[in-house]
Amino acid sequence: MSGTILTLFNGLSLGSILLLIALGLAVTFGLMKVINMAHGELIMIGAYVTYVIQSLFLKYVPEPFFDLYFLLSIPIAFLIAAGFGILLEVSLIRFLYKRPLDSLLATYGVGLMLQQLARSIFGAPNVGVQSPSFLNGGLTIGTLVLPYSRIFILSLSILCLVAIFLYFYRTTNGRRVRAVMQNRQMAECLGVQTRRVDLVTFAIGSGFAGIAGCALTLLGPIGPTIGTYYIIDAFMVVVVGGVGALVGAVVGAFGIGFFNTIFEFFTSATIGKVLVFMLIIAFLQWRPSGLVSSRSRVLDE
């Protein structure tokens, strides 16, 4: 019994981590169709921002307030990653909107450059971030201990998801974004400034990568190549979920999370991962456009 609950919780937890790292990509790749291979490095930037803020707090802020660093790093990681996103969009991606293969290669190069930048500044070895004390320990249910950090990431990813939904479906800016993604030319003819919409949307997607990086510091040490571990998973979530649909990313993330945990439970970590990949390959044969397909008759024309 407790084993089942633990497996369920682990699946939920893994799903929420996947969701958090894929949310930003669901915006830039899912909605805007930009293949941004540097997305993993934006996650890395978020993680290092958390590390820097933590170090500053260790040095300059009195001990009792140390825990506040983490709450502060979430918005700052968002802003700095979004800033890098803006830089990337203005200097590179806007020239490549209609050339997905070129943008794949170019952003891959940018990713390598950012990795090297991190290596030059922070050194090649991984660095550890000390978790805030309120996230140490766990919730005890019977014989089970559910770590607070995992519960925190779960809540954070749900919070981010709600924020993105509200932004896209309840605000004027979100409505503009949806209009531009559905019919760019007509939106332009009605007075929507499509350049600004592109820039802001890309910045938001990048910002959420920053938040994901911030959350990853709770799970283990971080290094310059942390992004490359997660970028494949992130793309997988978006592709399985269905490009262009945020709901798809949610289903994709938790689906992959659960299957991964269940397979791992019965086999080993490696075989579990292999089985998940095989399942995804089979699934994409059956539904090439993902779980939630945003295509309609009008969009196909």
């Binding site: 409505r175 559905q182 009605l190 007075g191 309609s296």
Partner: peptide, 15 residues
């Protein structure tokens, strides 16, 4: 805009 409601289509017209 196929996936925008009728009302949202009109709001885009206000841009």
């Amino acid at each position: 805009f196929p996936k925008l409601s009728v009302y949202e289509n009109l709001l885009i017209g206000l841009e």
